[in-house]
């Protein structure tokens, strides 16, 4: 089973990219399955099931962080995809808090970013970008040549190891190399590991303390004047 995990902010074109990949997998006679992880609303599973006749599922993470949800359900999802006779599982997830990334060792990690989100976005999204294998840039026709170039340079600044790929998700141009990369990955093993180090998990806010001001908290605290704080990926 090949695994591809697609992350990125809402409405950047993750599903549009996946749709073109599914078309190409279909043309090569490969059976795919699709899992969508979102917070509270998604219908991509129904759309793609209707379009491609493939097994699809969705999970709402609700009060849980979607990346956390991904870690919980991914093992089950692979077993489900295998039972469904799929050879490739594509997972689409809403990357939200920008502290973690949903990618696992052994599967292709793709972040989908839109050129229209501004030149500084690559500097802001953290491990969702820096731990990906490929950064796909969509909506390139909407911005000036200048901003396209700066956007790409900023991605390379923030994540020098990540391959950048501009695609036209309308016409599906620039998709083939993504499919090649996905299929060149070895099959995923049963014991998958989350890529990179997760952020600090003992957070007073995460466990429900709502008081404002560092004096009310413990563990990782920081005052305005204190420049040192925990650094993850």
């Amino acid at each position: 089973m090949k695994l591809g995990i697609f992350a990125g902010p809402a409405t950047t074109g993750k599903t549009a990219v996946i749709r073109h990949i599914l078309t190409r997998l279909h043309n090569r006679g490969l059976a795919a399955a699709f899992l969508k992880i979102d917070v509270q609303f998604a219908e991509e599973d129904e759309q793609l099931a209707a379009e491609f006749g493939i097994p699809t599922r969705k999970v709402y993470s609700g009060e849980l962080c979607p990346d956390h949800c991904n870690v919980m359900v991914l093992g089950d999802a692979l077993a489900w995809a295998e039972r469904s006779k799929a050879e490739v599982l594509l997972v689409e997830t809403a990357g939200l808090c920008l502290r973690c990334s949903p990618y696992v060792d052994g599967g292709l990690g793709v972040v989908v970013l839109e050129a229209t989100s501004g030149m500084n976005l690559p500097l802001k999204v953290g491990p969702m970008l820096s731990l990906a294998d490929v950064a796909v840039v969509t909506k390139i026709d909407r911005v000036s040549q200048a901003e396209r170039e700066v956007f790409r340079a900023r991605i390379q600044d923030a994540a020098p190891e990540v391959a950048v790929r501009e695609v036209n998700a309308l016409h599906g141009i620039g998709i083939d190399p993504l499919v090649t990369r996905l299929l060149n990955y070895p099959d995923v093993s049963k014991n998958m590991l989350l890529r990179g180090n997760p952020p600090v998990g003992t957070c007073t806010i995460c466990v429900g303390k709502k008081e404002i001001g560092w004096q009310a908290h413990f563990g990782v605290v920081r005052s305005l004047e204190n420049q040192s704080f925990y650094r993850g990926e």
Binding site: T116, G118, M119, I140, D141, R142, V143, S144, Q145, A146, E147, R148, E149, R152, A153, V164, R165, E166, G174, P177
Partner: peptide, 24 residues
């Protein structure tokens, strides 16, 4: 070449349309 498509600073083409704009 694929590199020309992937790297906008090597792209030999600049396109300016009625919709192209600066967002910055």
């Amino acid at each position: 070449a694929p590199e020309d498509r992937d790297d906008p600073s090597r792209n030999p083409i600049a396109l300016i349309t009625q919709h192209t704009t600066f967002l910055s």
